[in-house]
């Protein structure tokens, strides 16, 4: 019973905050008379969403696909390359600083290069998502694997475990809690990357992704449609973040303190 009340409180509190914000927004726009071009009301945005639902949902699916595939590439590459960098001191000294510097290059500046190399289309959005999501996974994997308990390392050494066995049975499982944190950050970034990729790699058609919907709506001065597409891209980001958090929770909740749900963190 107490648990149920707690759960309701956890769900109700953020919903109340959102409802309050939307009402305040609606009232503020109506009272101030700001033009709908500058700032449409939430009600108007809702109506636009409903009227353009086919186009928006189609776009969201495209963007989700680019973000998810980019995220998957970043996750696999980040864990593999990060593990190699963590295992080889020379790579750690040579490649890690380089990766850190590359991370400083703004994605929006790199995006045109991706178009030159990969052409217009979904693949460029996937690549942009992967580029921006790679570093948090890489950094988390390296940090996780270099901080594995040296005592446990010694135990594996005593029993003659090979480097490969130690990676599979110790380094990787021990660093999963930290890798999951990196993956959660990467999930949010992947959606940003996908949208930026879509901005530059413009592929339209009936199923244009959200990045294109936003650009087109901006050129047509349809601020309400821009807001609707932005809301949906946030929803895609939240869904990907939620899915990664759930998988992470499933992997670590039994043995690691970080395995608490987002809901438990905000209790």
């Amino acid at each position: 019973m107490m648990g149920a009340i707690k759960s309701i409180r956890v769900v109700v509190a953020p919903l109340l905050a959102v409802a309050f914000m939307l009402i305040a927004w609606q009232v503020a726009v109506m009272m101030s008379g700001v033009s709908a071009y500058l700032l449409p009301t939430p009600w108007a945005i809702g109506q636009t969403m409903w009227a353009n639902s086919d186009r928006l949902i189609g776009g969201a699916i495209q963007t989700a696909m680019a973000a998810t595939l980019g995220f998957a590439v970043a996750a696999v590459m980040g864990i593999l390359v990060g593990s190699m960098i963590a295992a080889v001191p020379f790579l750690r000294r040579s490649l890690y600083p380089l990766a850190t510097i590359l991370q400083m290059v703004p994605l929006i500046a790199v995006a045109p290069l991706l178009v030159i190399w990969l052409g217009f289309g979904l693949q460029t959005a996937i690549a942009a998502a992967a580029v921006v999501a790679l570093f948090p996974v890489l950094a988390a994997t390296i940090d996780g694997q270099v901080s594995v308990d040296p005592g446990l390392r010694e135990f594996f050494m005593l029993h003659g475990a090979s480097g490969w066995t130690r990676w599979r049975k110790l380094d990787l499982p021990a660093s999963i809690p930290i890798i999951v944190t990196g993956l959660r950050i990467a999930a949010g970034l992947a959606v940003i990357g996908a949208i930026v990729g879509e901005f530059v790699s413009g592929y339209g058609g009936p199923n244009a992704p959200l990045g294109i919907v936003i650009m087109t709506a901006m050129r047509e001065a349809r601020t309400d449609l821009v807001f609707a597409a932005v809301a949906l891209s946030a929803a895609v980001g939240f869904a990907l973040f939620g899915a990664v958090s759930c998988i992470g929770w499933f992997l670590v909740h039994r043995w690691h303190a970080s395995g608490v749900t987002f809901m438990e963190q905000i209790k």
Binding site: L152, F155, F156, P173, H256
Partner: peptide, 23 residues
């Protein structure tokens, strides 16, 4: 060792069996 050095994600059986698994 003075600290038990058990793998936190493995239950008692899997921890005890680990040296044999590594061999």
């Amino acid at each position: 060792f003075q600290d038990a050095r058990l793998l936190p994600w493995r239950n008692v059986v899997a921890n005890v069996a680990l040296p044999l698994e590594l061999s």
